[in-house]
């Protein structure tokens, strides 16, 4: 079953035992994980340091703060569409990893999915770190390899639309902030990052997604944030395994078909999801900082900004809403 030579599996087993919010004894946890008592204590201490909401009831009993379903590759696979279940070659769940995107970029074959309970160095746009407290978020990456050199301009927007539609189907009235952040009521709910390796005869793509599911209120992220629990208002947050499957089902077809379809089928949807539309914005590029009014995207996905009497298009840049 589980042994101490593979800490990730042992830790995942500990989390499984604690996951239903029950109070567990050290002996029971030791039995389930096949770890000695001291090792169980050590792992649980470490997990607490990484942000797992764990209570030590007394010297020998532990309990999780809220009901917590650990990530489980079988549960995710069971909820994939038949077509997808065929295309997804593997689903790997880590307890702790530096970055699921980095892992897939370096190790991936086509059709690999990787999730982690905790990312110590999750990657955002150009090296910014994505902060993910234990079990409070969904960190998932997937690999898709293309033959030759596909034109992928606008793919980040199409994927953001797919993620937004998926969350809207659950009942969260989210919007998309150009180019591909998911926002709810002006606060960031999820971030997407696409990385590719362009080789002579193919293009290896990794798509990573970080979604806040349930974050502690006192957390500091450096920008206004929200979580799915808030965005769903009165509805219960689905388990992260169900969420992961829904997001895979929504995003995979986009990855698969984008080189043929391009962005055009997504343009009408963008219009209804655009968080910046008609907002007064500031755009910072390596060349300049300008202020203007956002007026949607062009057919290639570039942000259109009205500056005085002139309409400008931006393919890159940092955009913020001016209050």
């Amino acid at each position: 079953m589980v042994n101490s030579s593979c800490p990730s599996l042992a830790v995942q087993a500990l989390l499984q035992s604690l996951s239903h919010g029950q109070c567990c004894s050290l002996s029971a946890l030791s039995h389930d994980s096949q770890l000695p008592h001291l090792a169980v204590k050590h792992y649980l201490d470490t997990l607490s340091q990484f942000g797992l909401a764990l209570n030590q009831v007394d010297e020998t009993h532990y309990q999780l703060d809220s009901s917590f379903e650990p990530l489980d590759s079988n549960l995710i696979r069971q909820q994939l569409t038949p077509n997808l279940a065929e295309q997804v070659k593997s689903i790997e769940v880590f307890t702790l990893i530096d970055s699921t995107n980095r892992y897939l970029l370096e190790n991936a074959y086509n059709g690999q999915v990787c999730l982690s309970e905790y990312q110590s160095a999750g990657r955002g746009q150009h090296g910014r770190t994505w902060l993910a407290p234990w079990g409070g978020s969904l960190c998932m990456s997937m690999s898709y390899h293309y033959r030759q050199a596909p034109v992928l301009s606008g793919l980040s927007l199409a994927l953001a639309i797919a993620v937004a539609q998926c969350l809207r189907a659950l009942g969260a009235a989210v919007q998309v902030k150009w180019p591909n952040d998911i926002y709810w009521q002006g606060r960031k709910l999820a971030g997407l990052l696409i990385e590719t390796r362009r080789l002579a005869q193919r293009c290896e793509l990794v798509f990573g997604l970080g979604l806040n599911c349930r974050l502690p209120n006192d957390i500091t992220i450096g920008q206004p944030w929200t979580d799915l629990e808030a965005a769903l208002i009165d509805q219960a947050v689905p388990s992260r395994n169900a969420l992961a499957a829904s997001l895979l089902n929504a995003c995979w077809p986009v990855l698969q078909h984008f080189p043929q379809t391009g962005l055009s089928p997504y343009l009408p949807q963008w219009l209804s999801l655009d968080a910046l539309y008609q907002q007064s914005v500031q755009v910072i590029t390596p060349l300049e900082t300008i202020q203007g009014r956002a007026c949607g995207i062009d057919q290639y996905g570039a942000l259109q900004v009205q500056v005085g009497g002139q309409r400008r298009c931006y393919q890159w840049g940092e955009v913020s809403i001016r209050l």
């Binding site: 970029l105 746009q125 150009h126 992928l152 301009s153 606008g154 793919l155 980040s156 927007l157 180019p179 591909n180 997407l192 990052l193 696409i194 990385e195 590719t196 390796r197 362009r198 080789l199 002579a200 996905g301 570039a302 393919q315 890159w316």
Partner: peptide, 15 residues
């Protein structure tokens, strides 16, 4: 190198 465009980070490799 990496060329970033609309949040796609493209690693450019030697052919």
């Amino acid at each position: 190198c990496i060329i970033e465009a609309m949040k796609i980070l493209n690693q450019i490799t030697a052919d």
